[in-house]
């Protein structure tokens, strides 16, 4: 009798046999994501030497390792900002219906299929000293000698733009299509010009979407690894934190340090995401509060 009552009470709160369907998925995430993560965090506190925080101390004491954080942020923040900032006006212009929109969207999706290696090869060929880009600039007479755009900061930056921009663009386009066009028409009726409509109506409504897009683009750019090795300067100006983590774990076989760097990487990334999302909540409540 009590068993039936308990089951009944649970069912009223939404707990019944159907929740078993969740179990396989939950088990996979727990076994393959949560447990390894916890294991990694545990490992990072058990270095071969230096006590509990030895691995972290080793990372932050060594300038060569520590600077990977600034290098990574120096690459991923500008790339993410540029991708989002460039997508807004382009998506704003493309939010209506026009001929060839589907084609243009498809063309912009193509870079997602390129993969890091083809992008890297392409950038080396196209932007290299004897590539078409430098050749074109030389023949116009804009420059006297080839500009160095590969195997340094700019090569990685361009590869981040090529892979990140289509992603940011698609997200922002879908956000913009979600904004009710009648709002803007109402503003136009009240006499608002094009810029005012964008500044006062669309932008505040788009702001939360911009923050989310920025976060996702930033995560993509922050985890840059293959292109930093292939088109960058992996020992110097583009030694990003994922290279440091990989190097520690799989070339030096110091799993403790490798896990510690991975943890630092996750913390830095989540900190940036948290700051942006925090700013977003400020922005959003501010603009809605202003209306009342």
């Amino acid at each position: 009798m009590t068993r039936v009552a308990l089951r009944h009470r649970l069912a009223e709160r939404g707990v019944d046999r159907h929740l078993w369907l969740l179990l396989p998925g939950l088990a996979c995430v727990l076994a393959l994501f949560v447990y390894p993560f916890a294991y990694g965090i545990g490992l990072s506190f058990q270095p071969a030497e230096g006590g509990v925080f030895g691995a972290y101390r080793a990372f932050f004491a060594d300038a060569y390792q520590r600077d990977t954080i600034t290098t990574t942020l120096g690459l991923s923040l500008p790339a993410a900002i540029l991708n989002v900032a460039a997508s807004v006006p382009i998506a704003y212009r493309m939010r209506g219906r026009f001929r060839g929109k589907r084609l243009l969207t498809t063309v912009l999706v193509v870079p997602i299929t390129l993969g890091t290696v083809l992008t890297a090869e392409g950038l080396l060929n196209y932007l290299g000293p004897a590539g078409w880009f430098n050749r074109a600039l030389l023949s116009i007479g804009l420059i006297d000698e080839p500009v160095r755009l590969t195997n340094n900061y700019w090569g990685v930056f361009f590869s981040l733009v090529i892979t990140g921009f289509p992603f940011a663009f698609l997200l922002i386009l879908s956000y913009l299509s979600g904004i009710d066009p009648t709002l803007e028409r109402a503003a136009a009726t009240l006499g608002a010009g094009g810029w005012q409509r964008f500044r006062r109506i669309t932008l505040p409504l788009l702001a939360p979407g911009l923050a989310t897009t920025f976060c996702l683009t930033f995560v993509l750019a922050f985890s840059v690894f293959p292109s930093a090795v292939l088109v960058g300067d992996p020992a110097g100006s583009t030694r990003v934190i994922s290279i440091a983590a990989y190097h520690a774990a799989y070339e030096v076989y110091d799993y403790s340090l490798g896990s510690a760097i991975a943890v630092v990487m996750g913390v830095v990334e989540l900190a940036v995401v948290a700051v942006v999302l925090g700013l977003r909540s400020l922005l959003y409540t501010g603009s809605t509060g202003g209306k009342g």
């Binding site: 727990l30 490992l43 774990a249 990334e269």
Partner: peptide, 25 residues
């Protein structure tokens, strides 16, 4: 909470959980 658990792997850079995961594997 369950939703957040399912979202985290998408929000984290693969290298961050990839290194501990590979160690465990």
């Amino acid at each position: 909470l369950v939703y957040l658990l399912f979202l985290l792997p998408i929000l984290m850079p693969p290298i961050t959980y990839g290194i501990p995961l590979a160690t465990v594997l």
